[in-house]
Design a protein around this nucleic acid. Structure first.
Lengths: 199, 199
DNA sequence: CCATTCGCTCAACACTTGTTGACTCAACGA
DNA sequence: TCGTTGAGTCAACAAGTGTTGAGCGAATGG
């Protein structure tokens, strides 16, 4: 149970002191609980008390570490950098589909927290809008057809809708569906919206 | 300002008494404020006090009339019957598109309230899931291709995504877009998902 | 005309929320 | 070894929430 810890930091460099180590551990534990809570209850229903309880920590500590519930939320939804899409339209569509095929069902809690809260929490809405707008621009600049941005926005909206229906609403018809199957059925439609022959 | 009212109910039948009339008026006024509040803040952030204030009424009256915030919400999201879809696949796709073409931008507050709350309010989620599941079945039973229900679910999800992105998130690229244009761009994609040649 | 109904308000309750400041005590560094 | 730092707790506060019960006064109807 008790984990042995170097007392004097014998090794050469920046061996983190036991205290700092412990601090980062609890901080990470809190963040993890927070992400889970925000992801499945949304910003308003997730309470600091519940988060603290799951992290086995006093509520006051959460505030002491993160400043406020809002700041905790911001830290919670910060996601590891998403590699930017690139290539021609065909490749982009495939990339988007692959993202669904692989990642749906295993989306990071940060993303789910974000999506869960974006309709009711104004700051989450702003951030979501910014993120989605960004993807629209990325996609749009590769589309040659007229109304590139509008088409891109519709593609993004489609993926958004499928993700919400599947991950957050748990639509019955999507419950058992395999991500690959979904991607496969979506492909012709997405290609059509992107303005290339559906093939 | 003062509207003349029959004192003795001279006319033959069921002339509503002034009191009852007044009551239904305030009840409707409260419902209207509630719908607006739920639609733009969501269930948790919409407060009874704010609703009552906008309806120029005491908060207690809201509870007295509707029982609880939850019951008020249920009454608020009850929407006038949606005509069930019917016909073959082509007609169904057109009907769905027409619904976007006409109604996006002028969706009833009840629907918006529902959608706004469905990710964070469990009861709203249940009701939304039920409604969407219903539409999936309607659509699915008309699709001849394999995976009819899955295809139907993807169509419904697409419409859901577009509506959310347009009405609730206010995506920049969708901001100015005309509903007809959106429907037009969506058509080939939807037809593809429905399993008919995109044409 | 008068007793009763009933729309409506007022003030308060009970509870939950985020947040704060004083405090404890083990780890730390010299 | 000893003073200091800092992780973590405890109890409490202030604000806001939904909800309740007593009460007022006008409409009602006999």
């Amino acid at each position: 149970m008790a984990q042995r810890v170097n007392v004097k930091s014998v090794t050469v460099k920046d061996e983190p002191t036991a205290r700092a180590q412990r601090r980062r551990q609890t901080e990470e534990r809190i963040l993890s609980s927070a992400r889970r809570a925000f992801a499945q209850r949304g910003f308003e229903r997730a309470t600091i008390r519940a988060i603290a309880a799951e992290a086995e920590v006093d509520p006051a500590l959460v505030i002491q570490y993160f400043g406020s519930k809002q700041e905790l939320f911001q830290r919670s939804v910060q996601l590891g950098s998403v590699p930017p899409l690139s290539g021609d339209v065909d490749e982009l569509v495939e990339a988007v589909l692959a993202r669904i095929g692989m990642k749906i069902g295993s989306l990071p809690q940060a993303t789910l927290a974000m999506m869960r809260s974006m309709l009711t929490h104004p700051e989450a809405a702003d951030q979501a809008r910014a993120t989605l707008d960004g993807q629209v621009v990325e996609l749009g600049s590769a589309i040659e057809a007229e109304d590139a941005d509008l088409r891109a926005a519709l593609m993004v909206s489609t993926m958004l809708g499928v993700t919400i229906a599947h991950q957050l609403l748990d639509l019955t018809a999507l419950r058992g569906a395999s991500p690959q199957k979904i991607a496969e059925l979506l492909r012709p439609g997405l290609r059509a919206v992107a303005g290339v022959d559906p093939q």
